[in-house]
Amino acid sequence: MAKLIRCATVIIWDEATMTNRYAFEALNQTLIDITGVDYPFGGKIMVFGGDFRQVLPVVPKGTKAETITASIVKSPLWSHIQIIRLKQNMRSINDQRFGEFLLFVGDGVQPTIIDEMIKIPTSMAIPWNGEESIVRLLEEIYPNIKNHSSDTEYMVSRA
């Protein structure tokens, strides 16, 4: 594994915003030890993906302050990170209303209902009609599932 790490040029870490900063700091020290290069992350290019508007690191029974302290932005490594913002949500490229909805939720401006729950727009919801609704949802996600139940690629593309 160390040989593979030494050969790597780029390491990609998705959903990094959900990870406790100490995991990054441990990886940093590990990469420095493996590569012998005394630069952040052993001189490797790190690509951290994630959205701070989503979930922060989980600190069991932690306070708000402890959760924030666990975030990568509180790590000394943060000063070495260059932020690049994506402009287009590729999942919503064919559905502008869905993209706008995601931005409203992410920016905290989507109206909420009881206990700050977000109401899903009617156009994105399947009305509840017992088990029939579950069957309809599955048909929307996995059309013609009987012919694809053993097709791994088909299932993964819809996960």
Rank of each mutant, 00 (worst) to 15 (best):
A159C: 02
V37R: 04
V10H: 09
A125C: 14
Q96A: 14
Y22C: 14
A16I: 08
E15Q: 09
R158G: 06
R136P: 07
Y154W: 05
T9W: 11
A16H: 09
L138I: 10
M155H: 10
D95K: 03
T17D: 05
G42R: 06
I81F: 02
K64M: 08
L102E: 00
F104A: 09
K146F: 12
D107P: 08
Q88V: 12
D151S: 02
K61C: 10
Y154E: 00
S123T: 13
Q88I: 12
L137E: 07
H148Q: 06
M18N: 05
G106I: 06
F98Y: 04
D51T: 07
E153V: 12
P57N: 06
I118R: 11
F104P: 02
V73W: 08
N94S: 15
P127I: 10
D95L: 03
S157E: 13
D33M: 08
R136M: 10
T19E: 11
G43S: 03
E131Y: 15
S157Q: 15
W78R: 01
D107Q: 12
P57D: 06
L27E: 05
P121L: 14
N89I: 10
Y22T: 15
F98W: 07
I11C: 00
N89E: 13
A70M: 01
C7L: 12
S79A: 04
K61W: 08
G36D: 00
V135T: 13
D151E: 03
A23D: 07
M117Q: 14
I5A: 03
P143G: 12
N144T: 06
V156E: 15
M18R: 00
V135S: 13
D14H: 00
V156P: 05
P143V: 15
V59L: 01
D107F: 12
D38I: 10
E140P: 00
A26C: 11
V37Y: 00
I12G: 10
E131C: 10
E66S: 01
D51V: 04
S123E: 15
K3F: 08
P40W: 02
N89P: 14
G43T: 02
R91M: 03
S71L: 11
I134V: 13
I126A: 10
C7R: 12
E140A: 03
S150F: 15
M90P: 06
P60C: 05
T17A: 09
N28S: 03
I126G: 08
W13N: 01
M90R: 06
R6M: 14
N147F: 08
N147D: 14
D51P: 06
I32N: 00
K119I: 11
V47G: 04
Y154Q: 02
N147Q: 15
V58R: 01
D107C: 10
K119H: 15
V10P: 04
S133F: 11
I72L: 12
T152N: 10
Y39S: 10
R6K: 15
V10L: 04
G42A: 11
K3G: 09
P143Q: 12
H148C: 08
T35V: 11
T19R: 13
